[in-house]
Design a binder for these strands. Structure first.
Length: 935
RNA sequence: GGGCUCAUAGCUCAGUUGGUUAGAGCGUUUCCUUGACAUGGAAGAGGCCGGAGGUUCGAGUCCUCCUGGGCCCACCA
């Protein structure tokens, strides 16, 4: 056994076991009668992604749950995979092309997609390989990708299903537009950030008619003050406030609140839109808040969602002034061709020049940003496809309300319900190339696209009313309306989340009509269906709070709509990984701690154990490099305790059934460690049931380190020859390893193989059964007395500077029979661990002067000091010490009263001195007490 | 504007349904390289549990308010 190194080397151990695990396919699962299914689907990481701490945390939680269930006897399946991340992947490949000086348009759609697939072949499995490094026990053979043929089939199936049900419609709407990615985004993909912007007050001249206030000389309310130009002529203005002055080019009205007295007379009048010289009306609309800005609003129906609604209400013109890339178009007149921000500046300058800019105020406001490239999004009017969400949300709401789906921690239920109750339609079309192309076809002959701008399709209009437009998985040969074969497909692709929301069932091959000839065979099909029936609904979904709306909520809706059942029973929302200053870890901030680097330095298990222990349910976790020492040290401790045990085991004595043998266990230490083990096991299982994984890890840590290693291993050294010590040592270690396995998979596997009497992999072993009969409060209490006694004696040793090797005598005073017996039976432990020479048990106190003393349980104890230390010398030493400390104390106190010192010394120094002062006063007190003992 | 969350040792955090003396890791002080382990062992020091009220025999824990961090949603001309 000497070949086991004294230091745990994670690298070696990990490499050894990855091979073993993969070769033996220990992570596969299939429908098994009489076995409880347990299934988790991985939140599919972005295919362009690189492993970060968030992934690590997420996967560790899932892996611990999966391994635990597997050991508990469930048929545990964990399905891995990646999503195609439409925009992100396209961006990556476009960047690559840009280096070669090419644009995707140069290649054309088909060639570009070939490039993307090439990229995905090369780099798409990076993240999967990295997940393996974490020790994730996924069924790797089932790795899915949202763009796989079978999976794509599910996406198209779903689109067609919803379209035929009237839940998908196309409409011209204001959507979030990213000018850089040149595509529409859903509301969830355009997070708002607070920005310091500016509020521009612009004068819109009122068209002069005989009824205007011009020249009347009356006082003017705020907002339309006269400005004198040249001498005689007075012009009136309406002043509007805006943060995006460039959108004025698309204004088609000015709106005021109908109740606003200031503007009462102006409603219905006409103003001249500056720079463009367009005549637009002043309208009244309740939307306008009289308190904001000037109480008058410019209305740009094509570039603002609220203005768009006003445009509909007042039948205004919709003027689009921008191209898809954020550059102004010909509707912008002389600003045609300018970028939106460039145009903003130009317009502001021009307005200044014409004295039409009243003022500029700083203004905090939230602006939407693209969640992929952080570009400021533009509210943009365009033709997009939407999913009606209200009908889908009904069952998804009920299921959570009824508790059929539970959130952990509970508080997320409210967040979910709130979002679901106010759900908005989902914009699912994206103007990019990489993704599932819309299964929508148009007939060139009979489909007539709507004229843009004038007439707008509303949600109420049924898409089916359109002639020459149809949905189909494959390109139809002929138009079902007119028979023409001149057919073309919609250019847009579907939102990536429109495929991810099917993940819990599409990963099983649903709807089982794959294009692949071999998979289409009946046998394969029914096999997959069996699997789906067996594993669906899945058990728990583990994910981060950021994607509750993106993904979790939508999966629940999809589950009910397409499977008629919830997709999972529990949703575990873990916190966000942050750096130690509380900032979210992100590449752009440069505060990333790379999990692979940590694995390299500390080991995968150390990373896992540390991060899991630091994360309490739903709470954000703050990481810094040194925190991983926690897990590393524990792993090393486990390694060494196992090493000691293995070195001292006699394999021939340990092969017994613990329950059957239990009558042979009489030693207090043995009974105690079993009691501690099983009560820890109980707490661990309770914690895991509630997903309190950090607590389970903590209980394990405390038991193993502070009970098993600190005490039992020390006790065992004295009785290694006894059979019961051999059995208990072995059984407790062996069971502990099994319990620790989900938390330290690599390490426990390696030890398992070195442990006598074990076979195969620890992964396929069962979780220890809770044997409550071993838990005994009496035993715990008795042992606590011994432990306290030993600790107190050690304390006295340390305080009186009694030499390590000096054997000391101890007088124990007690009238309690049980305590007496306890000491008599376990004096071997006391003698060895507290280094006692003689133990004298008495019922009445003898002369106990010159004794250090203490109390443990129902017994008092005394240590005569005379023989151990030179009392006069000690007295002298203590007296000297106390004098010196008192002098220091006085000096320090004076110093701290000194105003000069307080003024000039840095705060830290003053604080330190104060602490020192307190320390000194306590030291003085303690030495004084000791002097009293000496008389 | 609506909602959530946090405040406990110098630092990072645990603390179950209210219940004896509030815990851990790191750091720190003293001692120890003892045949499992210095990535370790032994013994210490260190806390008005953010503030103010209230409920209770009893509050770190429950309620109300306040202060100060962090987050989410909605609106934002």
């Amino acid at each position: 056994m000497n070949e086991i190194p004294s230091r745990y080397n994670p690298k070696e151990v990990e490499e050894k076991w990855y091979k073993f695990w993969e070769e033996n396919k220990l992570f596969s699962a299939k429908p098994t009668p009489n076995k409880k299914p347990f299934c988790i689907v991985i939140p599919p990481p972005n295919v362009t992604g690189i492993l970060h701490m968030g992934h690590a945390l997420n996967n560790f939680i899932q892996d611990i749950l999966t391994r635990y269930q597997r050991m508990k006897g469930s048929e545990a399946l964990w399905i891995p995979g990646t999503d195609h991340a439409g925009i992100a992947t396209q961006n990556v490949v476009e960047k690559k092309l840009a280096k070669e000086g090419k644009k995707r348009q140069d290649l054309g759609r088909d060639e570009f997609l070939k490039e993307v697939w090439k990229w995905r072949e090369e780099y798409g499995s990076t993240i999967i390989k990295q997940l393996k490094k974490l020790g994730a026990s996924c069924d790797w053979e089932r790795t899915r990708f949202t763009m796989d043929e079978g999976y794509s089939d599910a996406v198209l199936e779903v689109f067609i299903h919803l379209y035929n049900k009237g839940l998908i419609y196309r409409g011209k709407r204001i959507i979030n537009w990213c000018p850089r990615c040149s595509t529409a985004l859903s509301d969830e993909e355009a997070p708002y950030k607070e920005l310091e912007g500016q509020l521009y007050y612009i004068r819109y001249p009122i068209k002069v008619t005989s009824h205007t206030l011009a020249g009347t000389g009356q006082s003017y309310p705020c907002g339309h003050r006269p400005v004198t130009r040249k001498k005689q002529k007075t012009i009136n203005y309406v002043v509007v406030a805006t943060t995006r002055p460039e959108t004025m080019l698309g204004d088609t009205a000015v709106a005021v609140n109908p109740k606003d007295k200031r503007y009462k007379d102006l409603i219905g009048k006409t103003v001249i839109l500056p720079l463009v010289e367009r005549e637009i009306k002043i309208i009244a609309d309740n939307f306008v808040d009289p308190k904001f800005g000037t109480g008058a609003v410019k209305v740009t129906p094509a570039h603002d969602p609220n203005d768009y609604q006003m445009g509909l209400r007042h039948n205004l013109e919709f003027i689009n002034i921008m191209q898809v890339d954020g550059v102004l178009n010909s509707n912008a007149g002389e600003y045609d061709g300018m970028d939106r921000f460039e145009a903003r500046q130009a317009i502001v300058n021009d307005l200044k020049e014409r004295k039409l800019l009243e003022k500029i105020e700083p203004h905090m406001h939230s602006v939407g940003h693209c969640y992929r490239c952080s570009t400021v999004i533009e509210p943009y009017l365009s033709n997009q496809w939407f999913v009606k969400m209200k009908p889908l949300s009904k069952l998804a709401l009920e299921a959570v309300k009824k508790g059929e789906i539970k959130f952990y921690p509970k508080r997320w239920t409210k967040v979910y319900l709130n979002w679901m109750e106010n759900i908005q339609d989902w914009c699912i079309s994206r103007q990019i190339w990489w993704g599932h192309r819309m299964p929508v076809y148009y007939c060139k002959n009979c489909y007539k696209p709507q004229a843009s701008g004038s007439k707008l399709q509303t949600e109420k209009e049924k898409p089916a009313a359109d002639k020459g437009i149809f949905v189909s998985k494959n390109k139809p040969e002929k138009c079902p309306d007119c028979g023409s074969s001149d057919i073309y497909q919609d250019e847009d692709v579907l939102d990536t989340w429109f495929s991810s929301w099917l993940w819990p069932f599409a990963t099983f091959g649903w709807p089982f009509t794959s294009y692949k000839p071999q998979a289409a065979s009946d046998k394969q099909k029914s096999l997959q269906q069996d699997e789906l029936n067996y594993f669906y609904p899945t058990s728990v979904l583990v994910t981060a709070q950021e994607i509750i709306f993106f993904w979790v909520a939508r999966m629940i809706m999809a589950g009910f709509e397409f499977m008629g059942k919830k997709p999972f029973s529990d949703v575990y929302i873990h916190g966000t990984v942050r750096d130690d200053t509380g900032k979210k870890m992100s590449k752009s901030l440069g505060n990333i701690i790379d999990p692979l680097e940590i694995i390299n330095e500390f080991g995968s298990d150390a990373l896992r154990f540390s991060i899991i222990s630091l994360t309490s349910v739903g709470q954000d976790v703050f990481l810094s490099r040194n925190k991983f020492e926690y897990g590393r040290n524990f792993a090393n401790k486990v390694w060494n305790a196992s090493r000691y045990t293995i070195m001292n085991l006699k394999p021939e004595e340990i092969n017994v059934d613990l329950c059957a043998y239990s009558k042979g266990i009489s030693g207090l230490a043995e009974k105690w460690i079993l009691s501690r083990f099983y009560s820890a096991l109980d707490r661990i299982e309770k914690a895991l049931k509630q997903y309190k994984i950090n607590e389970a890890a903590k209980v394990m840590y405390e038991f193993f380190w502070h009970n098993f290693c600190d005490w039992y291993l020390e006790f065992s050294k004295l009785t290694l020859g006894r059979r019961q010590t051999q059995v208990v040592l072995y059984k407790v270690l062996e069971k502990s390893l099994r319990v620790m396995h989900p938390f330290l998979p690599h390490l426990t596997e390696e030890i398992w193989h070195n442990l006598p009497g074990t076979k195969s992999s620890i992964m396929t072993e069962s979780w220890p059964h809770l044997q409550k009969q071993f838990i005994s409060k009496t035993t715990d209490k008795q042992m606590q007395v011994l432990i306290d006694l030993i600790s107190l004696i050690r304390n006295i040793r340390s305080e009186w500077h009694i030499l390590e090797h000096a054997e000391i005598e101890c007088i124990i005073k007690t009238t309690d029979k049980a305590s007496k017996k306890l000491i008599q039976e376990n004096d071997i432990y006391l003698k060895k661990l507290a280094k006692l020479g003689q133990i004298k048990i008495v019922e009445k106190a003898e002369d106990v002067s010159m004794c250090a003393s203490g109390v443990a349980g129902k017994l008092d104890f005394y240590i005569p000091l005379e023989k151990l230390i030179d009392l006069t010398k000690e007295k002298e030493r203590l007296s000297k010490q106390i004098q010196s400390f008192e002098a220091q104390f006085k000096a320090l106190r004076e110093r701290l009263k000194n105003k000069e010192f307080l003024k000039k010394a840095p705060n830290e120094v003053v604080e330190k001195e104060k602490i020192r002062l307190e320390e000194l006063s306590k030291l003085i007190k303690r030495i004084g007490d000791n002097l009293k003992v000496l008389g």
